[in-house]
């Protein structure tokens, strides 16, 4: 069987060197220029947040920064739109639970 075509094949991409980011401590590979959400999709990860009420998993939905479903905690800062924020070498992404401000709960 011939290898499956990829988006990179389609545009004949010659990306810069890949680097590592972490999701809840697990190492993943990202390419320069990819958003955090794109890097997670590339690794087969589709959810990185749980909702405030039902605790249900969510990930990227609108892909353009309008829906806020892809909110993630990146390097300790909660509520960042993963579809807009570029992945950087060494980024630590953590699954965001609820509003991401459990540290403020009294």
């Amino acid at each position: 069987m011939t290898p499956r075509r990829t988006p990179a094949d389609l545009v004949r991409a010659v990306p810069g060197p890949a680097f590592e980011i972490r999701l809840d401590g697990r190492p993943l590979t990202a390419l320069p220029g990819q958003s955090v959400a794109a890097a997670l999709w590339a690794a087969g990860v589709l959810s990185w947040r749980t909702t405030r009420r039902g605790g249900r998993p969510r990930g990227a939905f609108c892909g353009i920064g309008s829906c806020f479903d892809c909110l993630a905690t990146i390097n300790g800062r909660p509520n960042q739109r993963a579809c807009l924020v570029p992945a950087r070498p060494g980024d630590a992404v953590t699954t965001q639970e609820g509003h991401g401000r459990a540290d403020l709960t009294v």
Partner: peptide
């Protein structure tokens, strides 16, 4: 429609165009 893997049609296209990724095969 809130299950991960359901994405906007435009969203899927935006993620493909900008990040060269797909939400599944």
């Amino acid at each position: 429609w809130t299950v991960p893997g359901v994405v906007g049609a435009g969203g899927a296209q935006a993620m493909l165009k900008a990040g060269l990724v797909l939400p599944g095969r």
